[in-house]
Simulated assay, not measured.
Amino acid sequence: MFQKGKVSVVVPIYKVEKYIHRCVDSILNQTYKNIEVILVDDGSPDHCGKIADQYRDKDDRIKVIHKENGGLSDARNHGMKQVTGEYTMFADSDDWLKENAIELMLHYSLRYQADVVQSAFYYAYEDKLLIDNRYIDANDEPLELDNQILMYELVKNEKVKNFAWGKLYKTELIKEIPFKKGVLFEDVFWAHQVMHNVKNFLLMHQPLYYYFQRDDSIVATYSPRNLDIIKGLKVRHQFIEKNYERLIDASYIAILKMCLIHYNLLFMNRKKDKNGIYRKEIQSYIQTNYTKLKNAVKYDKQLNTQLYLFSLHPYFNIAFLGLRRGLRSIRVLSHPPGLEQVEVNLKKEVLAE
């Protein structure tokens, strides 16, 4: 049996010596004290393992696991084996929490009898905080979603995010659902399995989690391994076809968007895609499923256009997007709504934690 009222926080650790104190301190300093913190040293080659042990020696709420490097999924799976709390959260070791995050999320979980609670979050940079205000107002009351609406929102990945972090789960809901090892974007392979079993999902609008954005450019650091996200969406699509027939078109749209994005990234990183093997795979998928994709995007003018141009030749779509960027730069086209900067001193915000 899991300990009633206790919240377990699983934190995988790997090469984050620069950030680990900010993360762990933000959890230990929570206003809600009935927690356990499971630090999983995933064979980190720096001093992270030693730092984790130092925390354990100072606070008996901390457990430390040292293991050979196996990746984020493997670390989370090892951490889950040690969970004793009625509720579980995941935090990435370069992110951090608002000091009242757990207290508020648990309060609303109990108030609404929610299986999972998701808070809003900040995109945290070294010098600024950004937030996606398209769908939220921090002053709004939490929004309850039943399973059907939840799965639709998960597939869209706008209001409900595929991220494992930023959510408070009833432990019994996730205990027997491991993360897929050996892949990037492991949350995409995992989230739909969890949400399929959720009866009541609560969407909070207050930002309680800081999602740290490193300076590395996705173009500069891009690797074909990033294509795992498309693999994850295809695995999820098979699940959708079996269990949520009405969401098949939405799932196709999610896959198409990701295929187009990654084709362009591969084009910009042609040296990493010898003989265009990965681009050909994407092109083959779109050609094979063209009729189904065309039907899915029939009400989306831009995606419909992109799909048509891509089917003629992928470079036509690239040229189309380049033209749109150019028109935006001279303000002929308006920029799509996106992230807004929050007027807050980040250093003070961090110190407040």
Rank of each mutant, 00 (worst) to 15 (best):
D115R: 07
L202Y: 09
I51S: 05
I51V: 02
I38W: 14
D140Q: 12
R214F: 11
V117S: 01
D273L: 01
Y125H: 08
L256Y: 15
K180H: 02
Q213I: 15
G232N: 06
I65K: 00
R270K: 13
E281G: 15
L106S: 08
D273R: 02
D216Q: 09
D74Y: 05
V24T: 09
K180T: 09
E245W: 05
V16N: 09
F189K: 04
Q306V: 01
K231R: 10
P45Y: 00
I136G: 00
I229K: 15
V64E: 06
L256P: 04
R331E: 11
N34D: 10
K294V: 07
F316Y: 11
D59I: 10
Y112C: 00
M80S: 09
K167Y: 06
E144W: 06
A114H: 03
L333H: 02
D132S: 01
K292P: 01
T88P: 10
Y285R: 09
D215Q: 09
A164R: 13
Y315D: 05
I149K: 14
Y278L: 05
G70F: 03
K159P: 00
S223F: 10
G232D: 12
Y210L: 00
A75I: 11
L184Y: 14
R270A: 06
D53Q: 11
D187V: 01
Q341E: 15
R331A: 12
V350I: 14
L307A: 03
E103K: 13
Y308M: 13
S109L: 01
Y152W: 03
F310N: 05
Y112T: 08
V219A: 08
Q3K: 08
L72P: 13
I136R: 12
F185Y: 15
D300P: 12
L97E: 08
L346P: 07
